[in-house]
């Protein structure tokens, strides 16, 4: 039980991933699709942050998650790998840019067609 709860951040990742993917692909409202997409991307950032915790992957017996600045340090010491954090920072910028382009398109689609419903818009194509 403790083992399952101990991985709460990974459970969060899986649940958010599923909700986000469902939202992005199945919602009919274009704005809800963008919200779903954002949740989907955020879930992946949560995974990146989770794997930055070195203790989790020591079981593989790899040098995984060894921070370059601490290369020669002892491995029992529990620290957090900075690289995934940097990746997430870049990822957030990319996600924000995607969201901005998507919302700009939504505004123009609404001005052009007066609806954001995917089914109604499909007939326009």
């Amino acid at each position: 039980m403790v083992d399952i709860l101990g991985y709460y951040n990974y459970w969060g990742f899986v649940i958010l991933l599923a909700i986000g993917l469902y939202g992005a692909l199945a919602c009919e409202n274009l704005f809800k699709k963008m919200v779903g997409l954002s949740i989907f991307q955020t879930a992946i950032f949560l995974l990146f942050i989770s794997i930055a915790d070195v203790g989790t992957f020591e079981t593989l017996g790899l040098k995984s998650g060894t921070a370059p600045i601490f290369w020669e340090e002892i491995h029992e010491y529990r620290y957090v790998n900075p690289v995934p954090h940097v990746l997430v920072l870049t990822g957030i910028v990319v996600a924000a840019a995607t969201l901005a382009v998507g919302l700009a398109l939504i505004i123009r689609i609404y001005r052009e067609y007066g609806t954001l419903n995917e089914e109604e818009l499909r007939w326009e194509l």
Partner: peptide, 27 residues
Amino acid sequence: SFNYLVLGAVGISFYLLGTAFLYAATG
């Protein structure tokens, strides 16, 4: 373009997910 954006962004997020898993395994 919007349809492409949604599927393209989901696709590229899957790529990022793959990278996360590969990074978790290899560092």
